[in-house]
Each structure stands twice: as C-alpha cells, then as structure tokens.
C-alpha cells in the first residue's frame, strides 16, 4: 500500500514536470516579447534585464505593422460567419439527405464523404481561380467557400446523428400539421444540439487558424491573423523579431481565453468528432 502511494507521488511530480515543459515554449515567447528586438535572437532563453527590457514597444510596433485589430476583425468575422453557415445549412442538408432516399441523395452523400480525404493542395489553384472569377474574394464570400469546403465533415457528422432519430417523432409533428421547416427547427434541430456544438468547435478551430486558403483568395486585400503574421516575417530583408514575438502572443491570447471558457465542450467535441470521423 505504501509503495502504491509513493508510486502515485512519483507519477504526480513527473506530470508536473511534463506540464511545465509543455508550457515553457509559450512562456519563453512571452518574456521575449518584452525584450528589445535585437536582444531576442542573441539569447532567447535569458529573461529580460534592465538593459534588454523594451516595455510594450514590440506590441505597439507589431500592432502597427500587421494592422492587428483589423486582422482580428477579419478572422473573427470569417470564422463566426462560416461556422454559423456550416452549422445551420449542413444540418438541414444532412436531414434532407437522410430522409429523402434516392440515387441523387445517396450519390451526393458519398461525394461529401469523399471530399474529406482530398487534401487542399488538390483544389487550391482551381478553387482560388473560381473564387476570383465569381467575385467571392472578400470576407463574406469566403464564408461560402468555407461552407463548401467544410460541408464534407459536417454533413457526415450530422447525418450519423440524424439516422439515430426515430422517424415517428417527425411524422407525428407532420400529421399535426407542421411543415418541414417547422419540423426541422422545432423538433430536429434541438435534438441535434450536441452534434451542432461539436461541428461548430471543429470548424472554428480549423477556420480561425487556416492560412493558405485566405492567403490565396483574399490575402492581398484582407489579411486574417495567420496571414498577417506570415507577412510580418517575409519580404523586406531584416525581420522585426520583437514585433513577431508580440504578435505570436497576441494571437495566442484569444485562443487561450476561448479554450478556458469552453473547455468542457471543446474536449468532448473533439472526442465525439474523432469517434465519428
């Protein structure tokens, strides 16, 4: 019994050590973001000293160079808009595909499933040309693109859940005189809520962090956060390490806040998503 307790204690402290090691990279970037830009590469592991401390200078220059708040706005708008469209429209689509059975709906369902395995590089060139051609190259247009690209996984997950809903519930509602729209929003969608949360979280994580799609389609005019950070890095010879560190921290902060406030949903959503996917 005593050895068991000792065993536990060793495990606990090993985990503490690992957790600190896991957090260290973020901590190092955090304190480097307060050092003068020329002191960072010299010795990234040294804490800021009187000589190297730069106050908020890196944050100010980083925000100016990347137009951070504008980038934040674009990222937020595109993520929220796309996720709302995906959750609403893909759940409607999945319900239709499961309840109306014919060759067309069956084929379409398999096309959605098929699209999940296709890597982005396969369609990136042709897709960005079509987006330009159709004048979808702005944040609102991107929500359409994300709906189309996210539809595979989302329709697949909603369909799996819709199949588990007994048909009788819906038929009873229809006999009582409610049309498909009413039936869907008053009966089906509330039952789908847990899946809707999972779908929303998986898509939000992907769209918020996505780099290549917004870069290729709207990157020259509207820079989302990942695109803005990449621009900060590339191009004009010497790069401002201080501004880069500050922007890394500024882009991690909203994610941490979102994570800590919705942790329960995120972790269970990820498990549910993985099991289905």
């Amino acid at each position: 019994m005593k050895s068991m307790k000792l065993h536990r204690e060793i495990q606990f402290w090993l985990l503490v050590f690992l957790a600190l090691a896991f957090l260290a990279p973020i901590g190092i970037v955090l304190y480097n973001s307060f050092k003068g830009q020329f002191y960072i590469t010299d010795n990234p592991f040294a804490f800021p000293s009187k000589e190297t401390f730069a106050g908020l200078r890196n944050y100010i220059s980083g925000i100016e160079k990347t137009d951070f708040f504008r980038a934040f706005g674009y990222s937020l708008f595109i993520t929220v808009g796309s996720v709302a469209a995906i959750v609403l429209l893909c759940s409607m689509t999945a319900w239709y595909l499961v309840r109306v059975q014919n060759i067309f709906t069956k084929a379409l369902y398999y096309l959605f499933v098929f699209s999940m395995i296709v890597p982005f590089q396969m369609v990136m060139f042709t897709m960005s040309k079509i987006v330009n051609l159709l004048r979808l190259d702005h944040p609102l247009g991107l929500t359409v693109v994300y709906l189309g690209f996210g539809a595979g996984l989302s329709v697949f997950m909603f369909s799996g859940f819709v199949r588990g809903i007994p048909l009788e519930i819906e038929e009873a509602a229809m006999i009582d005189g409610s049309g498909p729209v009413q039936t869907f929003f008053q009966i089906v969608f509330p039952i789908l809520r847990p899946t809707a949360i999972t779908v929303a979280i998986l898509n939000a994580m992907w769209i918020w962090n996505d780099y290549l799609l917004p870069y290729l389609t709207i990157g020259s005019k509207y820079r989302t956060i990942p695109v803005a950070i990449q621009y900060l890095q590339g191009g004009y010879g010497s790069r401002d390490m201080g501004a880069l560190m500050a922007m890394l921290i500024l882009s991690i902060i909203p994610i941490v806040i979102f994570y800590l406030s919705a942790q329960k949903y995120i972790i269970s959503g990820v498990v549910a998503g993985a099991v289905k996917g």
Binding site: M92, L134, V144
Partner: peptide, 15 residues
Amino acid sequence: LFLLPTLLAFLIAFL
C-alpha cells in the same frame, strides 16, 4: 431551401 445552398457552395469550393 434544405439542399441547394450547401450544394452550390460545395460545387464552387470543391466539386
């Protein structure tokens, strides 16, 4: 209403 919006987006972005 139920299928067309997603289908159009799917055509444009993927198919």
